[in-house]
Write a protein that binds this DNA or RNA. Structure first.
Lengths: 342, 342
DNA sequence: TCTCGTAACTTTATCGTTGACTTTGACCTC
DNA sequence: GAGGTCAAAGTCAACGATAAAGTTACGAGA
């Protein structure tokens, strides 16, 4: 069955170590011997036993990724990109979904720690940093993706959320919206950053959010946020002054919001322009194609993978590094109020 | 740092094996000793080294999943369900995406074999069975998901594709469509089954497909199939007799088809009713909400996970088992031609 | 009293690989 | 010819856990 170094060594009358050296391209092996060993390895389709290797080296050539929801295209794309980039370097990737549940997430992380993965990547649903202290105790390096935690000095790869907020809001202002509302997300770094960007963009036009024009997505139950977006938009429509543009925390909440607007008999973008965030793949096919800020998820994935590999290969812990990906505005019908393409 | 059995044994003046036995609930341990060991384990937060365990046992408590495209909600949902179900039993899941590329898929599988995963699950993009012979040689059990191969006797979990075709086509016929066309998928089991179901449903109404009314999705480039669906629908619209109903291989091709229909100035469903397959999560939010056959992807995932766990835990190879999940028709506006809800 | 069984541990060997040292022999130099 | 260098092997001891086969001590049964 599965061939071992020992078998090859016996077959060729060599010692196990010699064969092992060939495997790892060690210099002190004769050309002839090397050839014979390599030939035999091919013949028996030798595959090193990684468990044994891990045992000796303390490394597993394995990474772990935990995302809030694998069904969400943003995270699916990140996962796919990380998997593709790391596979090429001989690493395999454990992927799991925490369902936005902090406790489940902790369990996933514990399992990854028990498996001694070389690096953990998390798009975290935690509200406290306790969980990361736990990871640090095990001395397993980790990278936060998409969501940061206050002023924690950690490895991070994600979009520049303030830029997202500015991009979306500025775009709406350019489209002559003057009462731009914001449906903000839960109290995590991404939502806070986007809100900040929204305010800054308004400020740069000498505007401030009107009363009731910043509304929170409920966090209840539907974590994709369609229902939350629907409810939030209904509240906005009932506000003293109706908004003429809405920047939504993400695409799913934008879907809900658009539905609420259409249900109310209003037109998009004429009465209210809508911008989401995430640029999910089906934006083009919606009732009203949705303008959206692209977070460059694939890019995030690639950068995260590179960073993870660098960390995994490094002998020593290095200083935490934060990488910010620049977002990109993708304009579609839901916010295009002028045909001149401005 | 990471505590080992040895450390605990030293701390308590016991042998390593005794501690190991406590860990595995071995009977011949005194009550007092067991208590002391468990207490210490908790104190130092002991995590068994799975590499060492694997080395001895030859098992890794690890599963591998390869899907054609993690971005596709159908596969993402399956992946998520498998991951959730197996995690509870202490198994971790490697997930990777083959991008519908048979060669890449083989590479992924090789990596999983090298890692000695206990079971491999594949939604395969292969056109030949060669690759599975390779898996069999390594004696690693595997489960095919979604797509079968001819008459190969293998473990399989997927939807009953003939039922899918019948369900969709019968529904269109019930909606008084009389010229039902089919945009079929590539030459794999799923597409063949659905085509078969389509024909059988027609036959049971004493109909046969009209000339030019079964069209293949091109396999070129865009593997999600929107472009393919668009092109195929354009051809259908140019056919001698225009169809009044289209059953599309999947939802993404249905998106493309719907766009072609709308672009041609026709109405959905009045002029042409459309049914897809996959029931992807955003169906409700489309320009015309899409009727679709739900393949029960979560269900598929759960069943696949159960089967994988059973196989992983079994001492001996057992007879291959095929499980078929029943599909479900979800009717939305794209095919609802009567308001009486028939 | 002697054997035997049993509960509760311990010893030893093993899994497949690797890192740190040795050994061996050929060849060179002074 | 003694000593040194170098290439090309080989030995040994881990790595952390487990399975199988010992070893005690003690009480029961004959």
């Amino acid at each position: 069955m599965a061939a071992r170094l020992k078998d090859i060594a016996n077959d060729l009358g060599l010692s196990v170590v010699t064969v092992s050296k060939v495997l790892r391209d060690h210099p002190d092996i004769g050309a002839e011997t090397r050839k014979r060993v390599l030939k035999r390895m091919r013949e028996v389709n030798y595959q090193p036993n990684l468990a044994a290797r891990s045992l000796v080296s303390g490394r597993t050539w394995t990474l772990g990724l935990v995302v809030p929801d694998l069904l969400h295209p943003f995270f699916a794309e990140i996962a796919k990109a990380i998997s593709a980039a790391t596979r090429k370097q001989g690493y395999s990737l454990f992927i799991s979904s925490s369902d936005e549940d902090p406790e489940l997430e902790v369990q996933e992380i514990k399992q990854l720690l028990a498996r001694r993965v070389d690096v953990i990547l998390v798009a975290s649903a935690q509200s406290t940093v306790e969980c990361f202290r736990m990871i640090e105790e095990q001395k397993t390096p980790y990278i936060l993706i998409d969501r940061r935690f206050g002023d924690m000095e950690t490895n991070f790869v994600g979009v520049d959320d303030e830029a997202v907020g500015m991009l979306a809001t500025s775009h709406l202002l350019e489209q002559q919206c003057r009462r731009v509302a914001h449906i903000r997300g839960p109290n995590v770094s991404t939502a806070i950053g986007r809100l900040e960007g929204y305010k800054r963009a308004l400020a740069s036009h000498h505007l401030t959010p009107l009363p009731g024009h910043v509304i929170s997505l409920g966090t209840s139950g539907d974590h994709r946020g369609e229902k939350g977006g629907y409810e939030a938009a209904k509240q906005l429509l009932a506000a003293d002054t109706r908004p003429d543009g809405i920047f939504c925390f993400n695409d799913t909440s934008a879907l809900g919001a658009m539905r609420a607007i259409l249900d109310a008999g209003l037109r998009i973008p004429e009465d209210i322009a809508v911008v989401g965030c995430g640029n999910f793949s089906y934006s083009d096919f919606l009732r009203v194609p949705l303008s959206s800020v692209d977070q460059g998820s694939e890019n995030i994935g690639r950068h995260a993978a590179d960073l993870a590999l660098r960390i995994a290969r490094a002998k020593k812990q290095s200083k935490p590094k934060a990488e910010y990906i620049a977002p990109r505005m993708v304009v579609r019908a839901s916010s295009r109020r002028f045909s001149d393409g401005r």
